[in-house]
Design a protein around this nucleic acid. Structure first.
Length: 366
DNA sequence: AAGCCGGGGCG
DNA sequence: CGCCCAGGCTT
């Protein structure tokens, strides 16, 4: 892109920003800990969705030392429902690193920030510019969209070459912008989020449209270009809600799969949608935990749905009253006993959280 | 380079 | 129902 056009872009953007920026709780924030927290929360997450989580983390974990000292389960619980739970696990690891190996001092260089777990190029640039005024351009979904449209650049944003192209262009723009790095980064993201939106952008009322290649060519709707399309695999879960008086059994998910370190009921995964009650009774974990001592109270239907990025989860909840005491500790295996009234203390995936909410009446009465 | 990791909002 | 969101890690 010609230098002249780049100047036009940054000057018009700065003028737009002067009258349109979004007032957000973390704007003007000086504390690198809070800036880091907000950026991790906002990864692949809408501002409105992340806001209450940011407030909660600031309240429950006011300093990096508080976060480092917290039990992982407490952090997972605070993160419950936000998704991409590796962010929470990495957040904890990074907090312990800063608190215990750096004496509580947050890194103040791009490279130092980039070393933190869960911090990639975008987040490092965001923290470096917001907290320390360092000249690193952020490249997030908004930036890809704004630059690809304004520059008329059809190079795929999810290719190696495209990432490099847009990163270089973003950096050039930051360096000629009549704004400090942090403000410039805020400006281009606010502009992308509220004006140059994915759908129905405000092109007819846009201060950049005169030089916007996509607008001039009528190709706004075709940019940015992505080349990879995701395919969603279907999975069929059967959750065994085994009630022993006031207690149920749960376990923590481990291993390389979704929802790591979250809790759930004993799970039977079935390769296809149809599974008879007889098949489920004969399979683990039902057969091992309950045998023939269980009476089905209710099979929650229809199956509950949960869409993930690469998977479509279909879950059936089997509520079972089991005669006799819960299994002895030696026979519990990975499962733990929990009183139903204490289930809210554990972090569950959304599909189970929804089930617990919808069935709170049953859970209180029985 | 490709695959994987949540959940919600919107057209 | 498909796309997108203040992306990053693993393989």
């Amino acid at each position: 892109m010609k230098q002249e056009k780049l100047h036009f872009f940054t000057e018009r953007l700065a003028a737009w920003f002067a009258g349109n920026h979004r007032p957000l709780p973390w704007k003007g924030e000086q504390d690198p800990y809070r800036i880091w927290l907000s950026e991790i929360i906002l990864q692949q997450t809408r501002v409105e969705q992340g806001m209450p989580y940011f407030e909660r983390f600031c309240r429950e974990f006011p300093t990096v030392a508080d976060l480092a000292a917290a039990p992982e389960d407490a952090i997972m619980k605070a993160w419950e429902g936000l998704g991409y739970y590796s962010r929470a696990r990495n957040l904890h690891a990074a907090a312990k690193y800063v608190a215990y190996e750096r004496g509580g001092v947050f890194p103040a260089t791009y490279e130092g920030i980039r070393q933190l777990k869960g911090v990639g190029p975008y987040t490092a640039a965001a923290i470096a510019s917001f907290a320390y005024g360092l000249p690193y351009a952020v490249v997030d979904g908004n930036v890809y969209r704004v630059l690809s449209r304004f520059g008329g650049i059809a190079e795929p944003i999810d290719s190696a070459g495209g990432k490099k192209t847009f990163a270089q262009l973003a950096q050039r723009a930051l360096e000629v912008a009549p704004l400090p790095p942090g403000s410039y980064n805020q400006a281009i993201m606010d502009f992308g989020a509220t004006h140059c939106k994915p759908k129905a952008p405000f092109c007819t009322d846009c201060p950049l449209s005169r030089e916007c290649s996509a607008f001039q060519k009528g190709k706004v709707g075709l940019l940015p270009v992505k080349e990879k399309k995701i395919k969603r695999k279907k999975r069929f879960f059967h959750y065994l809600v085994a009630n022993y008086g006031a207690e149920v059994l749960i376990h923590k998910r481990t291993g390389r799969d979704i929802w790591q370190n979250l809790y759930e009921f004993p799970l039977l995964e079935w390769p296809e949608a149809a599974a008879s009650e007889e098949q489920i009774r004969r399979s683990a974990p039902w057969a091992t935990l309950i045998g023939d001592r269980g009476a089905v109270v209710r099979q929650v239907s229809p199956p509950q749905q949960q869409a993930l990025t690469h998977q479509q989860i279909q879950a059936v909840f089997w509520e079972v009253e089991v005669e006799g005491p819960p299994p002895a500790a030696s026979e519990l295996g990975p499962f733990i006993r929990a009183e139903r009234k204490n289930l809210s203390k554990f972090a569950f995936p959304k599909i189970i959280d929804c089930y617990l909410g919808d069935n709170s009446l049953y859970l209180k009465l029985v």
